[in-house]
Amino acid sequence: MSQEVVETEEGLKIRKLVDLRPSTAKEYQDAILNRVDHFSKRRDSVFNDATENIIVKALQIGLQAKVKIDELLGDNKDKIHEIVEKLLFLGL
């Protein structure tokens, strides 16, 4: 990690880090999983709700598909979003 030393107005020399990087991305991803594990130990945890787990899985698959479709749509993406929004607000 790169760093430099800067001098304060009062002459103190302090280290300054000039990067913005995670030391390990894995630890970061693990932090979520550990939290899920922590809650999953409780029987009534939302993470043990089978129906919700299926919905979440379906949403993830939907999101992956949506990201690819967005790429294919290119500049037309915004127009499609507008149409989808109109449908979502229909009847409300």
């Binding site: 979440v56 949403l59 993830q60 992956q64 990201v67 989808v84 929004e85 979502l88």
Partner: peptide
């Protein structure tokens, strides 16, 4: 569905985000 269309990347974080929206 409204939230989904303004999401740009899948992953574990988005899984937690959708759980937040759900429950």
């Amino acid at each position: 569905i409204g939230m989904l269309q303004y999401t740009k990347k899948p992953g574990k974080l988005m899984e937690m985000f959708s759980r937040m929206l759900l429950n």
